[in-house]
Design a protein around this nucleic acid. Sequence first.
RNA 1: UUCAUACCAACAG
Length: 260
Amino acid sequence: IWVFFSLFDELTEKGITPSVHTYGALINGFCKAGQMEAADILVSEMQSKGINLNPVIFNTLIDGFCNKGMIDEALNQQDIMVKKGFKADVFAYNTIASGLCKLKRHEEAKKLLLTMAERGVAPNTVSFTTLIDIHCKEGNYVEAKRVLSEMEKKGEKPNTVTYNALIDGYIKKGKMKEAYRLKDEMEDKGLMADVYTFTSLILGECLVGKVDEALKLFNEMPQKGLARSIVTFTAMISGLSKEGRSDEAFRLYDEMIEAG
RNA sequence: UUCAUACCAACAG
């Protein structure tokens, strides 16, 4: 980090002034790495150079603090943003809601997502998807499905992430038929099932003890041009081993290592 | 330049 800052200072001493976007990208990098102190330094630097902060920068900081579980500091940033004359936008709300979710503060997250409209910020696809995901994680796929209809009624289009969140809610409850139905539904809408969709379905089949069905999905992925992730492999491997099929599990393990 | 989805871990029970 200190190497970075000295190089960065050198650049600016040579009269190269980074743009807001450059700062934004750097701040985002530090936020993603959890280096909020470094992000803060860049923000101060921008201000001392008279570069105006924008809502994106604030949202980036809010996300960084949320991912560290520092909701209070995130809210503080939102406060500063508002005091600077920016409105808390849909990104800010979505980010804080998902931050609350990570801390298992589901009720507060739901309340935020349900009241943002009254506060003049229209929920978008991400907002609804977050809400769907919360209901699913609480095991309430019925309510989650209702939110899907609601968002469509309001003209917000569900995307692959929306369906994936919903499908995961169904498989966790062993509702495989309905999960496949949702997959068909998304494909009918031109949304392609991705590695998340398949991994959830594989996990679901394992949970209901249909490991062969899971294997079918697992083998279908490469044929569809989908790369299986480490998560896909571990789900499949643990499904096999729970059924006592350790030889197949080990074979997949080796395959996974070879594939990198 | 910013937000949402899959496996797994921990104290306690």
